[in-house]
Amino acid sequence: MKSMLRRVLMLLATMLIVSFLTYAAFELISGDPAEAMLGTQATPARVEALRKELGLDAPFLVRYARWLLGFFSGNLGVSYSYKLPVAELIAPKLAVTLWMCLISFIIISVISLPLGVLSYQSAVGRFGWLHTTLNQFFMAVPPFFTGILISWGCGVILRFFTPGDFPDLHADPAGALRYLFFAAVCIAIPRVAMMLRMMRSTVISEMEKDYVQTAISRGNDRQGVLVGHVLKNSLVPAITMLGQTMAEIVAGGIVVEQVFGIPGLGRLLVASIANRDYPTVQAVVVILAFWVVFAGMAADLVNQCIDPRLRLGGES
């Protein structure tokens, strides 16, 4: 329980730093939002009035605190280019992106965890080089390239979905998820290769540990050693890695949304950057970063369930 609390505090601290860095960066460069909103022709008096109205005359830390409080109460500011509250702009897109990341995450876990352990045998065998080479190859495949191939092959030719025509998540959830599935596959391919590579070296190093000798000396067969002992021990680093993979999934998602024409946070982010719409960029960046931090913590929690040594909360 105590270590849980510590984790949550760590999480909050990380989120605080992340949000502060983002806020500070944008404060530095965005110049005066009042000027940005009113345009260059506005009179100084009007700009001054708007500054007061927006609370921009307050000191930096006060503004940051206000912004952070606003963030957690759902007030993310107003988009420069859409003249809409950022929260309203983001809400429908957030679900789309999170679903896509989640599906991709599930694909990666479901494929790489069992395959990583099962492929151990052949990976140390005569065709080990083939595994390594294939891994390196798939790690080199950029999601946007697979995206082009898949949206053409599975979309245009096979008609599993209509590229560019994303179904509404609420009206047609099944269609939307099917659409997202193909995008998620593109993100997953290089990540699966990466996970497999990492899993394999983990299993190999676990196989050299003393407890494996013990397990063999007790009459375990290969399966018993691998499934009964090595699998569980390899799971901890694998899950840590899976948690970190969320960052890469989000990164891949930003690009893949563009390829598939998915109305998610990634496209909003890119459009906002092109338009220099800082409040929107700020909010999206912080949300995505929080999501990544959150995934890392979820991985930690799962690992604590698997590995009793982690439950001490690092006291030893």
Partner: peptide, 25 residues
């Protein structure tokens, strides 16, 4: 190192996008 830890929360492209939006694309 603490700052480093916080920075790993940003996917690399996201961070690059932030910087590029500051510098101008």
């Amino acid at each position: 190192m603490r700052m480093n830890d916080a920075l790993t929360a940003f996917p690399s492209i996201l961070l690059a996008l932030v910087v590029i939006s500051i510098l101008g694309p």
